[in-house]
């Protein structure tokens, strides 16, 4: 059951939702989603697990917590979306761009303990995290940033990288 898995990971119970629709009405990203948050929770409730995991909704959620703030049942869709992303990623159901983004992010955290933004963006482009049109569009911006001296290539790495990796390995199998 996906719903119970979500509850286990996020602590939020999708079944407790009354389906009032306040979340969807409040969602800034609703216009690009396959399903609004309410609908997604409903699909979870009735056990349409595949639809849930395949929908783009969870990847579009901007984690703005607007739904969470307004929910009359004190349920957080945002946190449910995190849990769903965890599960989807484990099952490798993930849009290409997102995959590049998250993998690179994780790599940075595990390698350096921090995110080195300039390097991160470079790697992202190489990994296919950006469409060609986006790259073209962003070139101008890149040049500007370079001129301003905002892009620095020095890598910062923390001493505790070892510990971070250890923590990661401990929690790697929490999601099945």
């Amino acid at each position: 059951m996906l719903a119970s898995q979500v509850q286990k990971i996020s602590g939020e119970n999708p079944l407790a939702c009354y389906q009032c629709g306040n979340c969807t009405g409040s969602c800034p990203m609703e216009f690009v989603m396959d399903y609004g948050p309410r609908r997604l929770i409903h699909l979870l409730q009735i056990g349409y697990d595949d639809e849930v995991l395949k929908s783009n909704t969870i990847w579009i959620c901007a984690s703005c917590y607007n739904c969470t703030y307004r929910c009359p049942r004190k349920i957080s869709f945002t946190r449910m979306a995190f849990a769903l992303k965890n599960i989807a990623m484990k099952k490798n159901i993930i849009p290409k761009k997102c995959k590049a983004f998250y993998e690179t992010f994780l790599k940075h955290v595990l390698n350096y303990g921090r995110l080195n933004e300039s390097l991160f963006i470079n790697e992202l482009v190489l990994k296919g995290g950006k469409d060609f049109s986006e790259i073209v569009r962003d070139i101008n911006l890149g040049i500007k940033l370079w001129r301003k001296g905002k892009l620095k290539m020095k890598i910062s790495k923390i001493d505790g990288v070892k510990d971070i990796v250890k923590l990661y390995n401990l929690t790697k199998d929490v999601i099945k």
Binding site: S63, N86, Y102, F105, V109, I158, I164, L170, I175
Partner: peptide, 21 residues
């Protein structure tokens, strides 16, 4: 020696790990 907080990316990958960060 602070480390990355995980932002929204790490919770998306692994909620538990994000707490630990």
């Amino acid at each position: 020696d602070w480390n990355c907080c995980g932002a929204t990316a790490i919770p998306s990958i692994n909620v538990e790990f994000s707490y630990l960060l």
